[in-house]
Design a protein around this nucleic acid. Structure first.
Length: 842
RNA sequence: GCCCUCGUGGUGAAAUUGGUAGACACAAAGGACUUAAAAUCCUUGCCCUUUUGGGAGUGCCAGUUCGAGUCUGGCCGAGGGCACCA
């Protein structure tokens, strides 16, 4: 039998597709299919292969179904790794990045993706970031940009800001110095102006996974609570606190304010306070670090008066767990009903008053360390006694408003988006600082503000800031001397609008052409990793809304109509006896079936399958797999076995099996083309056609629902169906017609093989998806389960939609069923059309 | 710590969304073909029973239902995110 020569075939068809704009149709219906663009780290990895294979199935399927498809690709090219490489290998980030892009593009092309490379963009090109600078200025002019202080991780030895991933156990990754929290003045996008829009906008996103919407909802964190002013003893100031549990006010036993609260400034000369403040600065900046840190406080000696209990005084603490950027930076502590407050109260021996109880149970807080946070009935609370938590909330808010000491308040957990980075390899922020202290945007005509190429990575800190001349400039309008902003933009900014740029990627004057943007946007299907569920997707949603504020002609305010989040690619991990990681090509099976190292036959410990990562050496190089098995087989395996939203385990056996199956498809084609016709039977033919039609319908639905692994299983079944039918008296014409449809189904999955087969059969129409013959499907017999008392006792094959009476009759013809029903009294018969019939008997 | 998700054979999984649990594969064992190997094809897969047949069974415990992998409550375990990795 003819071997499938995938190397020649794949090369041939990639050439054909390159020379034709295959994926654009003249139809009106548009479809924008986008996969998250990659960071050009050097080589493509299996995660990319999976992401782009899934995307290619969608894009090609939509094209076959008559859509005008936009399927572009670009590079998320700014970021830390390029700077790290620059430091290590003395390479310029530009050169390193461009090399990586060229290499990865070459590799990606081998997958045979239906990407329109004419539209390629790279965020590190000035043709791209010029427009990003324009957008920044537009946002600035619309009041969507502000400047505030924010904490960063500061490495005191390297004099540089560290990313969270560069802080390991509270120390700098290179210097090993203890990292401090330092306040810097930085640029922010005022994303909180859109808190409510970002929240309500989620309701419209019907084609997003619920879990992602829920994560975003929790991230935005809308809560309804109230603000209350507390009068301070012997002090004319008041403290405004925010709480979501005003119902527990009678259980308040302390006030806690943030270290950054204005009132805390009064203690800046206090030695004890400064000691406390310094220990707060060692906590780290991540939310996880703050949540796990021991709750500590500084007793100010000041007291406030309880607003509803006359003469009751409550102490004020400055505490590390109260954050200035949430609520008002001050809270009242009710230890009985909040875990943090309870931990704090126990540490500092503060009073604990239970004000909510379940079934009138009294809790002894001397014995338990667990706060009671569930619903219950109010106690020890004066006029709130006997009310439920929610009724008490409403009543106390009314009282507070009546007394004019506060009001109902909606608060969001969402913070403004800090976009300043003290790094070289990013988009320069187009702002200048004049000598008189004013800060102005650069004139748009001066854009792009380009990165200098001659930078020194050996000195500490931001290379842009230490560049001898770059930051020196003049204000264009006045000619006054000025200093450039040396911070660059967070790389999340780059990726927050690239999908808009793809609509008109070569436009020089503007970031995008409105007509083209309105035609293509929103992205109909966006595909990428679940790790981007919150930040990237939320920032992109903000951008779309912000861009619309600036240009009201834009139709959409949500960028991604459909979202699909794919799982990771995993592989077994291996370690030698010393505990060093081993890569899959360093190991082999010996004659006894044990796993050993290739050269020294040392025993290998096989670990669990984990996400492929360089550090664990459990990676497999896609390019070498393509070389051995072919791109189609690699694509096919990526879609087999696991559902796309779940993790997949890479296995060489799996990809090898895929390769074998594609060979079988090839053989099937040859067999049908060369088949000699014998006797004919219309009955056999009809059965084949009807069954095949059913598969076409199932597969069409499965693709729409992203169940590609089930499609693969159905394709195996089709193969078996046709293979068995070959022994039956069926005409060659019938086989050819079925084969043509079968190969068209395979185009999105294994495009090279399918195209080659279609050409061999002589089919010219390769831009259509097979039409389902609905009548034919109705005539396929189905299997119905017969149960007795809920247990399946038999299965009978009947016509579809058989009515209850007939089904009962049919089922009693079955020997086993009639035997089981003998001498039994039938109490009830449950009939579910096309599914089951259940006899309840005594 | 907080938020989210997921637990089905030796393995990856499927199950028309409350209706035949294990489709389709991988691995294993046995067999066919072959001088032999590779390739290919076939069979098997929990427990009891020689067979016919019967029973258990979807992380664990309880509940709703004629019927639960699917719904409800509690428990246990694994993974993702936590604002400067992208």
């Amino acid at each position: 039998m003819d071997r499938l020569d995938f190397q020649t075939i794949e090369k041939k068809w990639q050439e054909v597709w390159k020379n034709k704009n295959l994926y654009r149709s003249k139809k009106d219906k548009k479809f924008y299919c986008l996969e998250m663009f990659p960071y050009p780290s050097g080589k493509i990895h299996m995660g990319h292969v999976r992401n782009y294979t899934i995307g290619d199935v969608v894009a090609r399927f939509k094209y076959l179904n008559g859509y005008n498809v936009l399927h572009p690709m670009g590079w998320d090219a700014f970021g830390l790794p390029a700077e790290n490489a620059a430091r290590q290998n003395n390479l310029n980030p530009v050169d390193w990045t461009k090399q990586n892009i060229a290499e990865m593009k070459r590799q990606l092309k081998k997958l045979g993706l239906s990407i329109d490379w004419e539209l390629e963009v790279s965020t590190c090109d000035k043709e791209y970031y010029k427009h990003q600078q324009e957008l920044f200025i537009d946002f600035y002019n619309k009041g969507l940009v502000s400047r505030k202080e924010n904490y960063v991780n500061w490495d005191p030895v390297e004099n540089t800001v560290l990313a969270n991933e560069q802080v390991i156990n509270g120390r700098g990754w290179r210097s090993n110095a203890v990292v401090e929290r330092k306040k810097l003045s930085q640029w922010f996008f005022n994303i909180t102006k859109f808190s409510e829009d970002l929240l309500t906008g989620l309701d419209k996103l019907n084609h997003w996974p619920d879990k992602v919407k829920l994560m975003q909802k929790n991230w935005i964190g809308k809560s309804i609570g109230c603000e209350i002013d507390f009068e301070i003893e012997d002090n004319s100031n008041k403290i405004k606190i925010f709480t979501t549990r005003p119902d527990t006010i009678f259980g308040a036993t302390f006030i806690a304010i943030s270290v950054d609260h204005p009132l805390a400034l009064e203690f800046q000369d206090n030695k004890e306070f400064n000691k406390f403040k310094n220990s707060c600065l060692k906590m780290g900046t991540t939310e996880e670090a703050l949540a796990n840190a021991e709750k500590i406080g500084f007793k100010t000696g000041l007291n406030v008066f309880h607003p509803f209990v006359s003469k009751k005084k409550i102490p004020i603490y400055i505490a590390n767990f109260v954050l200035m950027d949430y609520g008002t930076g001050a809270i009242f502590g009710c230890p009985a009903h909040d875990q943090r407050d309870l931990d704090f109260a126990k540490k500092y021996n503060l009073n604990i008053i239970q004000v909510v109880s379940e079934n009138q149970k009294k809790i002894d807080y001397k014995k338990t360390n667990e706060a009671f946070i569930d619903d219950g009935v109010l106690i020890n609370s004066d006029f709130l006694d006997g009310l439920s938590v929610s009724d008490a909330k409403n009543k106390i808010i009314k009282e507070i408003e009546k007394k004019k000491i506060g009001q109902k308040k909606i608060s969001y957990r969402l913070k403004d988006w800090g976009i300043s980075r003290q790094r070289y390899w990013g988009c320069p922020i187009p702002m200048i600082y004049l000598e008189d202290g004013t800060i102005k945007p650069v004139e748009k005509s001066e854009l792009p503000i380009e990165l200098p190429k001659d930078v020194d990575f050996n000195s500490s800190g931001n290379p842009l800031a230490s560049h001898p001349t770059w930051k020196k400039t003049t204000q264009k309008k006045t000619g006054k001397p000025a200093i450039r902003e040396t911070d660059t933009l967070d790389t999340f900014v780059d990726s927050s609008w690239y999908f808009m740029r793809f609509c008109s990627p070569r436009l020089k004057e503007e970031p995008f052409n409105i007509e083209k943007l309105n035609y293509w946007m929103p992205v109909d299907q966006y595909i990428g990793g679940i790790e981007h569920a919150i930040l990237h997707l939320l920032y992109s949603r903000f951008f779309m809304k912000a861009v619309k504020v600036n240009n009201t002609k834009i139709n959409d305010d949500e960028p991604f109509k459909g979202l699909f989040t794919q799982g990771m690619v995993c592989h077994e991990t291996y370690k030698n006896t010393k505990g060093d990681w081993l890569s899959p090509d360093q190991i082999e099976k010996n004659s006894k079936g044990e796993i050993v190292t290739k050269n020294s036959s040392e025993k290998v410990r096989v670990g669990p399958s984990e996400a492929m990562s360089k550090s664990k050496k459990n990676t497999v190089d896609p390019e070498s797999m393509i070389k051995i098995y072919g791109a189609d087989a690699v694509r096919w395996f990526m879609l087999s076995d696991s559902p796309p939203e779940k993790d997949i385990q890479w296995s060489n056996q799996g990809v090898s099996a895929s390769h074998k199956f594609l060979q079988k498809i090839w053989n099937l084609n040859i067999e049908i083309i060369n088949r000699k016709e014998g006797k004919l039977s219309t009955k056999a033919e009809k059965e084949l056609v009807d069954n095949f039609n059913l598969y076409v319908m199932k597969i069409t639905n499965l693709i729409n629902d992203f169940h590609f692994n089930v499609v693969v299983a159905q394709v195996y079944e089709i193969h078996r169906l046709i293979n068995e039918a070959l022994k039956k008296p069926i005409s060659n014409e019938c086989f050819k017609n079925i084969l043509i449809k079968f190969m068209k189904i395979l185009i999105p999955f294994t495009p090279h093989l399918a195209s080659e087969c279609l050409q061999k059969i002589g089919e010219r129409k390769i831009d259509e998806w097979p039409v389902v013959d609905k009548k034919s499907i109705q005539e396929v017999k189905i299997k119905v389960a017969i149960q007795i008392n809920g247990k399946t006792k038999g299965v009978i094959e009947v016509k579809k939609d058989l009515p209850e009476k007939d089904l009962i009759k049919e089922s009693q013809h079955d020997k086993k069923i009639s035997k089981n029903l003998l001498n039994k009294e039938i109490i009830r018969i449950i009939y579910v059309k096309n599914r089951i019939i259940n006899y309840l008997v005594k």
